[in-house]
Design a protein around this nucleic acid. Structure first.
Lengths: 205, 205
DNA sequence: TAATCCACTTGTCATTTGGCAAGAAACTTC
DNA sequence: GAAGTTTCTTGCCAAATGACAAGTGGATTA
């Protein structure tokens, strides 16, 4: 029997990939992870749609279920610099802007149509205060991000552009099927021209 | 009269620069910051001394009061790659190893004699659990680190070596008086040879 | 279907950077 | 204080990368 005081139970969609992602980040009971995932709302992004524009403060954080996003900044010469490419099963956010509540210097935009799960800043704060596991999850996001950035810096210092290309090709081959090479080149720290030559030479080996 | 049950009150040294650092990171009453700072122990590091060696798990976190440290990794060719240079008034730590309790891939070593304030992992956990302000402080350390790493990546992608040199010279001129150019070159992502030429050309302008 | 736009490639040439080796100067160590 | 080590500089040349311009092909649109 349905209570008249409660809203009618709405079928709440749920992302199994988000639950799996949460549990792989911080081990916790399945139900706990489901409670967390239930705070996320599904959304479809069209290609070229922004989830964050520079100058704004991030209102939501996202889990990317399918599709590709990129983060980029505009440099003084009018070129844009791709600073990150997000593949499915990633947590997408400008953590600095989001947690410090300050205007973002970067943009985050859908490269392809995407399915994401969004959580508002307020809902996230509620989770932070009420659920220690989630606090850990947030901290782990920051730490993993840190690790990834540091690895990238080491790679920029000590590897050639070709080595960085080969590494990306191995770790995320799917990216090359969905993200324009121009953006990948920028992400790797080279021009699209150089990437094109690297690909040619690389294929001959 | 001195109690026989309590340890004799020992004069606890205190770092005013640490207190100032904490309060500039997270605004809080002076006394609160002093309570936090009181958990840190002063230590003198001799040049070349390690505070973290690869393969080990960080046991302590540090606030650097005076002197210079660097973080570096060894690459397969036997060269070392400087991934960070710490100047006075910095928080020094491999956050990833420290918070995840996993072996560090990087080394942290004194470049000059240093005065640091150390806090053990256990003391830090106690602070985390007992003092919400400190939880914020820890999170802010991660966020600021994130920001710095991202800025560096953008700089590696879009600036020339000479521009990166000029930026460092302006933001941290003191580093050039205390840290060997070889390490600075590695930090900037170039060889010491190239840095030497950049400095020569730069001086002529 | 024609026009347009965009992504990608290629050619040419200049610039930047690296690899290697040698030498000067400063610092360590015995 | 002599010998050895490290740091920094410089010369020479090769390799990597960028800037600019042109061209191809595919996708989109009118």
């Amino acid at each position: 029997m349905i209570s008249t005081k409660q809203p009618i139970s709405i079928e709440q969609p749920e992302s199994t990939s988000l639950v799996a992602f949460i549990r792989s980040t911080i081990p916790m009971p399945h139900e706990k992870a489901q409670d967390i995932a239930a705070q996320f709302q599904p959304r479809i992004l069209k290609r070229h749609e922004y989830v964050l524009q520079e100058g704004n403060i991030g209102k939501e954080a996202f889990f990317l279920e399918s599709g590709y996003l990129r983060a980029f900044v505009n440099d003084p010469d009018g070129n844009d610099v791709t600073i990150n490419i997000f593949a499915p099963n990633s947590f997408v956010n400008n953590l600095v802007s989001f947690f410090r509540r300050e205007p973002s210097e970067e943009n985050i935009q859908a490269v392809t149509d995407c399915v994401v799960w969004a959580i508002s800043y307020d809902a996230l704060q509620t989770l932070f205060h009420g659920m220690p596991e989630f606090r850990e999850f947030g901290r782990m996001m920051l730490i993993m991000n840190n690790l990834a950035l540091k690895d990238r810096i080491v790679s920029m210092i000590r590897n050639t552009a070709e080595e960085r290309y080969a590494a990306l090709l191995q770790s995320k081959p799917d990216v090359f099927q969905h993200v324009p090479l121009k953006m990948i080149a920028s992400f790797l720290g080279i021009t699209d021209t150089s990437l094109s030559r690297i690909r040619r030479d690389f294929a001959q080996k």
